Simulated assay, not measured.
Amino acid sequence: VVPTATGTSPDEILLTALALALAEWRRGRRRGAPGAGPVLLDVEGHGRGDDDGAELSRTVGWFTTMHPLRLDPGVRWHEVRGGAPAAGEALRRVSGQIRAVPAKGAGYGLLRHLNPRTADLLAGGAGPQIGFNYLGRVRTDHSAGAADWGAAPEDVRIAPTDPELPFAHSLEANAVTHDRPSGPELTVTWTWPGGLFDETEVESLTDLWFEALDALTRYSTAHAAPADGAPRSLTTSDLSLADLDQDEIDELEADLADLEDLT
């Protein structure tokens, strides 16, 4: 529902909701901390479908990528609850920030570790404490009624963490959507060092994340572009040739709407 109505991808929706949830979770854990503001994540990808011109037709497997990503929804938690219009603003902002990353961050590892002109500079930046990986949507239908030809059913599982392996982040989320006969089912696996958080704390973050996803779903149903083909709101990534931020784009769209009303 949300991708179709808003023109966004599943990972953009998940990351918008996660950014909102993390800001509110941070406020709850640290009394007096702001309930909004940017969050810093390490985002992992599979390295395919980045439209970078690489010829991958004779390859198998994933080309794992990881890059830091700073996300700022620009709204507070109470403004998005229940699917208020601010939820759409948060989604537009975050999707624009994600799409602004060249090649989905595929070149970050080269700049961080192999390029002598940039390695030291990037090494001096803040290290994300949260890791996020969306494995995508996989088909799980093994029934005899499935098509004779098509993508093979997949059984994607999050491998358990080796207890001897150091943690790369204080908290990591691995998400995957299983396309089951009853409908798509989102599964999230959290990992963290036992000395940093207890299960109740992580459950509270998960609850906030799914509450934010519910708000985005409600927004897309009530306020997003209707099914009759009306245009959706633009983001900064839609206007790559114009040096405009999201506030300026929103203002121009509002002015255009006023002109259309007058005519």
Rank of each mutant, 00 (worst) to 15 (best):
Q129K: 15
S204R: 14
V2D: 02
D120F: 00
V94N: 01
V156I: 14
P73W: 00
P184A: 12
E55P: 01
D11V: 09
D50C: 12
H223E: 13
A152V: 08
P193E: 15
W190M: 06
E24V: 12
L71N: 00
L171Q: 03
V101K: 04
N115D: 15
W62R: 08
E44Q: 11
D148V: 12
G109S: 13
A5L: 12
S9C: 05
P193K: 06
T177R: 04
G37H: 05
L111G: 06
E201G: 14
Y134A: 04
I98G: 00
D141A: 07
Q246H: 03
L262H: 08
P38D: 07
E172T: 15
D228P: 11
T161I: 12
E251D: 15
E253S: 07
H223C: 13
A257W: 03
L216F: 06
F63H: 14
E260M: 06
T235S: 13
G195H: 14
V75D: 01
R70C: 06
L205Q: 01
R232V: 14
D155V: 13
A23N: 03
A168D: 10
E251H: 11
D258A: 15
D250K: 00
A151G: 10
G47W: 05
T6N: 08
D42I: 02
L186A: 08
L244K: 06
V94G: 02
M66E: 08
D42L: 10
G107S: 07
G194S: 15
D228K: 10
E24R: 15
L71I: 03
L20D: 01
A215T: 08
D255F: 06
T189D: 05
L252V: 13
G109D: 09
G183E: 13
V75N: 01
H67Y: 15
Q97C: 02
T140E: 07
Q97M: 04
A230P: 04
E260C: 08
A151D: 11
P184V: 10
G195P: 04
F132Q: 01
H113K: 07
